[in-house]
Amino acid sequence: MEFTKGHGTGNDFVLLPDPDGQLDLTPELVAALCDRRRGIGADGVLRVVRAAKHPEGAGLAGDAEWFMDYWNADGSFAEMCGNGARVFVRYLIDTGLATPVGAALPVATRAGVVRARIDGATIAVEMRRPRVYDGSTATLGGLTLPGTAVDVGNPHLVCVLPAGIDLDALDLGAAPGFDRKVFPAGVNVEFVVAGDAVDGTDEHTLMRVYERGSAETLSCGTGACAVAAVALRDAGRNTGTVAVDVPGGRLTVTVTADSCWLSGPAVLIATGKTHPNP
């Protein structure tokens, strides 16, 4: 099985070329590929398949040739992955499977069609505007932390840390608790503190994230969008640009009146063949 390994600010993926949708991809195989000791190691798998050849992408084939079939590291599905979409686009371009038109390229996902914009090493993807819709709480190591529910095509709970709680000291070795009545399908939980001013942005935040199906990751693109939306709301703004620092680097999120742009580096680091034995 041929594969490519790539990452966006440390959020890493195994990409599997399967243009005609013939690969028998199973949860067990995905988990084996993502295993960091017995497999290639990744936060998730991106199957590269033509939209017309995938049952969940066929209805979007008129708007995008390629469908990003994203799986979490534990073999579960996810609706959307912002960093994954950026790495997916990098793969399409570098392998010659797609050519941007006017520096733009559409990609079909389970959350709909996203549009990518390419500027050298930086790739930005336009996604739906985050919907801030409810209050809830997360529990972690004996702490109960207030949070805000945000929909970015997938569910997020953004917890701005109260004064006196150190972001770096949080133990994310185990999944945070959350209200399953609010998040019946699980949730990605972001822990956030404000950062110093950054030129060219309206707000600056630092975040760590525990992703459902993948545990703590070095970065989460949709999580950065959710965090940006909450930071702007708390600052009394509806739109704006937010620098979001994650353990793997910096992402820039621009929330407009009707969409959200996630921008940052996306790189491919290896290609090869694997013989997984799940």
Rank of each mutant, 00 (worst) to 15 (best):
A61I: 10
G62I: 07
A64L: 03
E65A: 10
M68A: 04
D69A: 10
Y70E: 07
Y70H: 00
W71S: 05
N72Y: 09
A73T: 01
G75K: 02
E79Q: 15
G82D: 10
N83H: 15
V87T: 12
V87F: 10
F88G: 08
F88K: 10
F88E: 13
V89E: 09
R90D: 10
Y91P: 02
Y91Q: 10
I93M: 03
D94F: 00
D94M: 04
D94W: 01
T95R: 06
T95H: 11
G96M: 03
A104P: 00
L105C: 02
V107G: 02
A108F: 01
A108R: 01
A111G: 10
V113E: 07
V113D: 03
V113F: 06
R115G: 05
A116P: 00
A116F: 05
R117F: 14
I118C: 14
G120S: 14
A121V: 12
T122E: 15
A124T: 15
A124Y: 12
R128H: 12
G135V: 14
G135P: 09
S136A: 14
A138E: 04
T139I: 02
L140H: 01
L140P: 00
L140W: 03
G141D: 02
G142C: 04
L143D: 00
L143A: 00
T144M: 05
G147F: 03
T148N: 04
T148Q: 08
T148H: 04
T148I: 11
V152E: 08
G153S: 10
